[in-house]
Write a protein that binds this DNA or RNA. Sequence first.
DNA 1: CGGTCCCTTGACAGCCGTCAACTACCGTGG
DNA 2: CCACGGTAGTTGACGGCTGTCAAGGGACCG
Lengths: 236, 236
Amino acid sequence: MISLFARKIERFTKLPDDDHAALEAACDRTRRYRAREDIIREGDKPKSIDIIMSGWAARYKVIEDGRRQIVAFLLPGDLFDAEAFLLPAMDHSIAAVTPVTCAEIPRETMDDILRRQPRLAQAMWRDTLVALSIQREWTLSLGQRSALERIAQLLCELFLRLGAVGLTRGDSCDFPLTQSDLAEATGLTSVHVNRTLQELRARGLVSLSGRELTVPDLAALKAASAFNGNYLHLDD
Amino acid sequence: MISLFARKIERFTKLPDDDHAALEAACDRTRRYRAREDIIREGDKPKSIDIIMSGWAARYKVIEDGRRQIVAFLLPGDLFDAEAFLLPAMDHSIAAVTPVTCAEIPRETMDDILRRQPRLAQAMWRDTLVALSIQREWTLSLGQRSALERIAQLLCELFLRLGAVGLTRGDSCDFPLTQSDLAEATGLTSVHVNRTLQELRARGLVSLSGRELTVPDLAALKAASAFNGNYLHLDD
DNA sequence: CGGTCCCTTGACAGCCGTCAACTACCGTGG
DNA sequence: CCACGGTAGTTGACGGCTGTCAAGGGACCG
């Protein structure tokens, strides 16, 4: 059941069988969320650590006057709420983008894992470090890249991350984000995202319609965004 | 010697004495860097995990055409290079802003800590989660805040983080960043940072001269940047 | 006293935001 | 069947925040 997550963290170190068993046993329940439903809100103190089994979600932060920023996308296989386990309370919110199914690891189980499965705990810590690396790249993007580069960069990232968990079909993949979602993630307005997507299409870099993204020439899209995939830590 | 770091991670859970001893024993050497010297470069695979004992450093990323973004500041008590321990190679660089002194934990010692001191490992993981939370706030800032808000926000953050490790004096603190540093951290140009600082001074929100920052009214500065300090996880 | 780094200032331009209206699509229900 | 409403996408006109370019000033230092 937790195969996607296991596969992801085993990119670095193969886990022994008892860690697999512990992880398998830890995910005792699943939970479903509707599209656009909040999964956790800022200030909450959730009782479990979740792994996304299917669907897309978005971490977002709001400023009191209503401005809103998506700070990360969560894809199948991604672990989240480790922060809720180790920190006092959530400092941001998470919303489902599509219908989402999660596997839940209860807090008490996490306590056991930390004490008794150090390799598994280490793999989870490493997962946090990859998330941090991605967050740094978003900081770079928002600080330095133009609108076109930012959007191209984000599309590259999502395409590669989906590919890493086997969710691409050739040069295409599902793409449930609206232009407003893209705008909130890139710090642009949806109007400007719209114009920029037209530019990307005009250059033949992407085709994006009917909830499907096609990237005919990934190298070209990378070049357009000055993409450097090291930050994803997908290889080796 | 590692007191600042221990104090920082014990905000959440008191560590037992043997963890203290393990941490103390782990930091067997210190190393010094000159101001503006690179401490680690992208692609490196350092042999130790470092804790800053004194001075300021900056994590930064570059795009191949030369654009440069500071993605985090590292202050005394901060742990860094955990990513270098758990991930294949550095995906960014770190440079000293001032002269810096670091305590070094060798990789082999870290292996031992993970196996034998689960509470200490957990505290370090938590430290990574706080860094991730800060990185999310930077993403929010760059995506949504105006130039004035971004700079005010950053000044608030640095002032509070310095205060948490006892490095403020009343409403003042050392402030070694140049306007170019601020520009690279906020995604602005140094010209615009200059004008914006003048605006902040004109409003009486900060005074910044001779490497010293004074914040006469922290609440006012927070208000000017729509600051919400939850993300720092400094209390409780 | 020349050099370098940092800060400051002015004029101008451009990327992207704001505002507003319009189209397309789709599911619901009369 | 068509009216209806809501969401998503599109387009145009205009404005402003911030960048670019260029020059100059002040402080520190060898």
